[in-house]
Design a binder for these strands. Structure first.
Lengths: 177, 177
DNA sequence: TTAGATATATGCATCATGCATGGACATCAA
DNA sequence: TTGATGTCCATGCATGATGCATATATCTAA
């Protein structure tokens, strides 16, 4: 039983991930570019170093990636007011539109996949997903990356956020002792 | 509620897919190479054209990919007995070992993620996953690709197989009319 | 036998990437 | 203030996976 569940669940995750990645790349962006847009949509004013960390790319590669996205008019670079070394990144208007489109397509894909379930089944799946997801998170950076393609504005009671707050609270308790 | 489920489930799929891909690339293989090994582990005697189709790569790129894997001793190429144009691909002993290792790591990753659920919850998740997965399959080729990283020998009552058989049966009924 | 289809292979250009390095700026200590 | 060290961004260079166009070998059907 267990092995069969593992395979089925793994296959499902793979299938969904394939479809989602296909969505977000449907605008002529390579995966790393699409993910950068995802991150910048959620966390504007990132630096190149932070972005490099978030998308698991070398700094140099991220510099070029940013240059490409800037050339295509999706992001804007500006100098930091407080630190002359830092370049602040932000989605342009076109970039924000692209990001919204990415999230819309992803949401639609997921909706289609999940609408075969009844209301009760959806509730159950939400509960189970939340539980598994919570256990899967390694640290704050990982949590941030896992949410990189989410549609955050509509994510009520985000399980990732909840889990991280729970841990932070536990951490605070520990440090008080 | 629905939107939150969509996000949580999408994030979970992404997190698992990330981890699984990290597993299968932990042997110095690029993603396409790792997937080729996965396919050949399940379906020996594929041709280059079939493999190219399975991993969504151009024929030319697949020729080079196969050459790389052959150089590294993971696959063997042999001429077809019946068709002089065809190159038959098969995992070498080392390749089979690599494939087994990939599946082991993936299985372990999934097991860890799912062991936080109770027995009942696992049964429920298996049922829901199967239902969603069945709806997600587009055609036979897609089904084949979705299973590309599965540990097939231990996949009892494979939901993908079941779904495709169901469809084939339906197809036969139609053609009889 | 010949024309067209199919399967593999190769020359060439492109492009994302990593490594090594350089340059600008910040921070801290003397 | 100055100098040392660390941080952040940028760039030259090489690598490697990929696609397109094309060549070669083989099969199939007329």
């Amino acid at each position: 039983m267990t092995a069969a569940l593992e395979n089925a669940f793994g296959a499902l995750a793979l299938a969904l991930s394939d479809d989602i990645h296909a969505c977000i790349q449907s605008n002529g962006l390579v995966p790393s570019e699409a993910e950068a847009v995802g991150h910048l949509g959620h966390a504007p004013d990132m630096t190149i170093t932070h972005l490099a960390d978030a998308i698991s790319l070398s700094h140099a590669a991220t510099v070029r990636l940013v240059a490409r996205l800037e050339d295509r008019g999706f992001i804007e670079r500006s100098a930091s007011q407080t630190d002359g070394r830092i370049v602040v990144l932000r989605l342009s208007e076109n970039g924000a539109e692209l990001h919204a489109s990415q999230m819309r397509q992803r949401q639609e894909k997921l909706r289609t996949a999940l609408e075969t379930l009844s209301e009760d089944e959806q509730d159950m799946l939400a509960k189970l997903s939340t539980k598994v997801l919570g256990e899967l998170l390694r640290d704050e950076n990982h949590a941030f990356r896992v949410c990189r393609l989410c549609n955050r504005p509509v994510c009520e009671n985000c399980p990732v956020e909840t889990e991280m707050m729970k841990r932070e609270a536990a951490q605070n308790w520990l440090s008080v002792e």
